[in-house]
């Protein structure tokens, strides 16, 4: 039996802001079932069709507030999916890579050089090296944290999602440095121990970013950023 047009219109109106097709289908089926069952019960109790319709609409609630409820519920449902998580981790990592390269270019533009003059050489200058390393970590990873915080806002495991995404990006950065070193030193990436030994010996552009200290500090930085941003979100969520 097909549903009356007013039911279809009412339900479609409520789901106007729901842009995920599978959630839309599911919510529409449930709402249609509910509305039609309530309508049939009221008609069976002796209500005139028009009265029953008005009663159903009153009991269901206002379209505006329901539209908002469904939009928020859709965000919760969609962001809890694994596919959504992986897609946004990849997008976030790509954005971070762009910011990373941009930061590198800006530092170079500001006069920081590896070891050549004129400019501020970072090798043999601990302060400049620290500043360079801090900027290279905080700017892209800070941007990544903001992005992941926004897209994982509705996830129950927000802190874990942000932290794991940042650690994935961190591992990606290390892999990229390894790849770059492999090209610089002409040592295949598959000969990993030999490559790491060569990088550790220093003397080239990637050496400062592959020390045990830098690796550990950035890894801890990712965990701290992830936990803190997730925690802050939960606090503000409780307030609202």
């Amino acid at each position: 039996m097909s549903s009356p047009k007013w039911m279809e219109d009412y339900v479609n109106d409520i789901l106007l802001d729901v842009d995920d097709a599978s959630y839309h289908r599911r919510a529409k089926a449930e709402l249609m079932n509910h509305v039609s069952e309530e309508y049939q019960v009221l008609v069976a109790r002796g209500y005139e069709p028009e009265e029953a319709r008005a009663k159903v609409l009153e009991r269901m609630g206002g379209v505006e507030s329901l539209r908002k409820d469904y939009r928020v519920a859709c965000l919760h449902v969609v962001s809890s999916r694994g596919r959504y998580y992986f897609r946004h981790v990849l997008i976030g990592c790509f954005l971070m890579a762009i910011v990373y390269v941009a930061s590198f270019c800006l530092l170079a533009g500001a006069g920081y050089t590896y070891d050549a003059r004129p400019g501020t050489p970072i090798i043999g200058n601990p302060k400049a090296l620290l500043l360079f390393g801090c900027v290279l970590f905080t700017v892209p990873f800070g941007a990544g944290t903001l992005y992941f915080r926004k897209v994982f806002k509705y996830r129950q495991d927000r802190s874990t999602a942000i932290t794991s995404a940042l650690l994935f990006a961190w591992a990606g950065e290390k892999a990229a440095i390894l790849g770059l070193s492999s090209l610089i030193y002409d040592v295949s990436i598959w000969r990993l121990p030999e490559l790491i030994t060569r990088i550790s010996a220093g003397g080239d552009q990637t050496a400062p970013w592959f020390t045990v200290k830098y690796i550990l500090a950035t890894m801890i930085g990712c965990v701290v950023l992830g936990l803190v941003s997730g925690f802050e979100r939960q606090r503000s969520g409780c307030r609202s």
Binding site: A27, L31, H34, E38, M60, G61, C74, H76, V77
Partner: peptide, 17 residues
């Protein structure tokens, strides 16, 4: 509660497992 707002609540609870 307004009957229409039950389902979004159920969906959010389901997303929280």
């Amino acid at each position: 509660m307004s009957q229409g707002s039950l389902y979004p609540l159920l969906h959010v609870m389901e997303s929280k497992r």
